Computed example of a mutant assay.
Amino acid sequence: MLKHWPPLNVLRGFEAAARLGSFHKAAEELHVTQSAISQQVRSLEAYLGQPVFFRQGRAVSLTDAGWDLLGTTQAMLRQLAAGIRRLDQYRKPNQLIVNASPAFARHWLMPRLESFRAARPEADLWLYTSDAPPDMATQTVDIALRDDLAPQADCAFRVLVEDRLYPACHPRLLAPGAGAPATLHGEREMDWSHWETQGGADVGQRAQGMNFSDPGLLLDAAHEGLGMALVSALLARRWRDEGALAAMTEQTVRGPNWAWLVHRDSQDDPLARAFCGWLCAALGVPEASASGG
């Protein structure tokens, strides 16, 4: 549809002339001749089939159609300028773009990022979260860290942690006389049907209860005392260590596999390699190069 629009330079000339009320001032601002502005406006009016300016000697004023077009044009130019400014982030020399699921970013990565920043203060980390895994071939991502990854072309793939799941709730729900906690339901491995099919013990779970599509929000709900949930041992570790979350049984069942994808173009980047090394140390897994499988 862009081929049916007036050229961008024509719209810029119109916007400047309308804002400044003068073809001459618009020409000075855009560093072109006044005749160029006049020609741009004439071509715009020919395209629209109606005038956008009233000419009054050297001064010009907008017609009703001109006022309407000015609002649209200024909004479009502001949006275009903002989009162009955003492109600066792609040329930062020490930028590292890491994709993660919202749950992993909030509950595991964010509480530990200060140690990476202390080790590599020059790193300009961009933490990009998404519900679905990125397409590493078409999206600008150096490293993806998720529990829903599969190998992709031109990427190193490695399973980092084979997670375990267990029922947990806020400790106050286990106090004498507190009664049976409500049941919170998740999706995929965090659904109670997974616990039951894996031989998990009966801890009083019921079919009724609140449902959460995001495992991070499910963990938040358990931490807030809304009920008991099937939680990730990896994501819940900090709150359990702090005594803010209590296991209802020491039994665990198989959970998701947390893995990384490291794009081929990033595998020899010093910052990407440093981040992968820091990640392995923080997870307590053997270190491997960014290109290692």
Rank of each mutant, 00 (worst) to 15 (best):
L2M: 05
T72N: 05
Q205A: 10
L80A: 15
V285E: 01
L219P: 00
Q139M: 13
N94M: 10
F54L: 13
A207G: 15
H194F: 12
G204T: 13
S291W: 13
L44M: 10
Q39D: 12
A75Q: 06
I37C: 06
G200C: 04
Q198Y: 06
G49R: 12
V159I: 13
A123R: 00
L165P: 01
Q198F: 05
D268L: 14
W5I: 02
G284R: 08
L109M: 15
R106Q: 14
L271A: 04
E45A: 07
T63R: 09
P6A: 04
F23I: 01
D269S: 10
K92V: 04
I84M: 11
R85K: 09
G49C: 13
H263S: 14
A272G: 11
P167A: 10
T33P: 09
H263R: 15
Q74W: 01
Q50T: 09
R238N: 08
G216P: 07
V52F: 02
I143Y: 07
W278N: 13
N257V: 12
Q74T: 09
W192L: 06
N211D: 03
G177L: 06
Q79N: 07
E29V: 12
L109N: 12
A75M: 03
V52G: 02
G57V: 09
A288C: 14
G200E: 08
A82E: 14
S38F: 11
A156T: 09
L226G: 03
P171I: 05
S35N: 14
G284W: 09
P134L: 08
R55L: 12
T197K: 15
D220C: 05
F157Y: 15
D163L: 02
G255E: 00
S266P: 04
L279C: 03
L217F: 01
W108F: 13
S43V: 01
A65S: 15
G21L: 05
